[in-house]
Design a protein around this nucleic acid. Structure first.
Lengths: 166, 166
DNA sequence: CATAACTTGGTCTTTTTCGCCAAAATAAAG
DNA sequence: CTTTATTTTGGCGAAAAAGACCAAGTTATG
């Protein structure tokens, strides 16, 4: 393949930077540099490069859902009986517009969608489900997983190499 | 109820700040202040208060999974046939230790777990599944949703009031 | 020798602290 | 019940401290 690999391989320091920034996104370059054992200039250059290369795609404050009255976390599985090309497109657009739908994935099996939504209450849940069924033409069935307890919710990806030809 | 409400209600400016910080977590206080129409001092005070009150729980750089060779996103549903108290505890601990498991939820229905994991490849997936089945004593069945396409992945929660007795 | 990566030092910007001000709310006095 | 203090709340601007950023020169490394 003609893959123009502009993006240098990530070394130990880069991965260290990624680990730290994933957990402390507002850390100063000075302290970050200290922690990874560099002076600020090359450290900043590395961060800027990671951003340019698309390794770091953004920085985000995490907000406690309960503080915004999102008391309901729900996963919804939607199975389509037939799939016309524009049904998918139409659905994707609808999903994009709804800010309460945090994730939407097209999963294998029988061409299902898996949605993750944070909602205020049950009435909003019913509203959402209604809207889904309206938007999609050929819904075979839908199954909901209402979350009783969030055991783990991690934003950090592991950065270690773990036996990958290094 | 004797709810000591230390946390003041969020006003328009607070919500504005939250929206911006959710999308630009490394923005400077000076620019943030500009955008919300305040001078830096009160703006910073508000942010600090939002952090103290637990509205903002952290700041995180988002890393492109593909850049770290995570090519596989999978949701795993695990149903337990019987649930001894320490089985849950044991499972939770195991989940905590595995960095590839990004989310783990206890969902309603027949006391199932729903996991979200980012993995390098299929062999790691098999490895994970094996470990799950070993860790949990009474697994009735498990179903996997392998993600073919990530239609939407949003980190931002809506901050608008949307008809909530304001 | 040349390139890549780091260091140092200086300048400009941002952060953070501090004292002050205005408006609103609360309390006291007439 | 109205008027006048007093506290509380939220905001402003200036100045010191810290950090970001830039332009050299310096050290590794192939």
């Amino acid at each position: 393949m003609a893959n123009i690999q502009k993006t240098r391989k990530l070394d130990r320091i880069d991965r260290n930077i990624l680990t730290i920034l994933q957990n402390e996104g507002r850390i100063s370059y000075t302290e970050l540099a200290d922690r990874v054992g560099l002076s600020t200039t090359p450290c900043m250059e590395r961060v800027k490069r990671l951003e340019r290369d698309g390794v770091i795609t953004g920085y985000h404050a995490k907000v406690n859902p309960e503080m915004l009255d999102f008391n309901l976390l729900v996963f919804v599985e939607i199975a389509l009986s037939y799939q016309s090309p524009d049904a998918f497109e139409k659905f994707n657009k609808a999903v994009d517009k709804l800010p309460y739908i945090l994730e939407c994935h097209l999963v294998s099996g029988d061409a299902d969608y898996l949605l993750k939504a944070r909602l205020h209450d049950m009435s909003q849940y019913r509203e959402l489900l209604g809207q889904m069924l309206l938007t999609l033409p050929g819904v075979k069935n839908s199954k909901s997983y209402i979350v009783m307890e969030e055991v783990k919710e991690q934003s950090e990806l592991p950065t270690d190499i773990s036996a990958k030809g290094e």
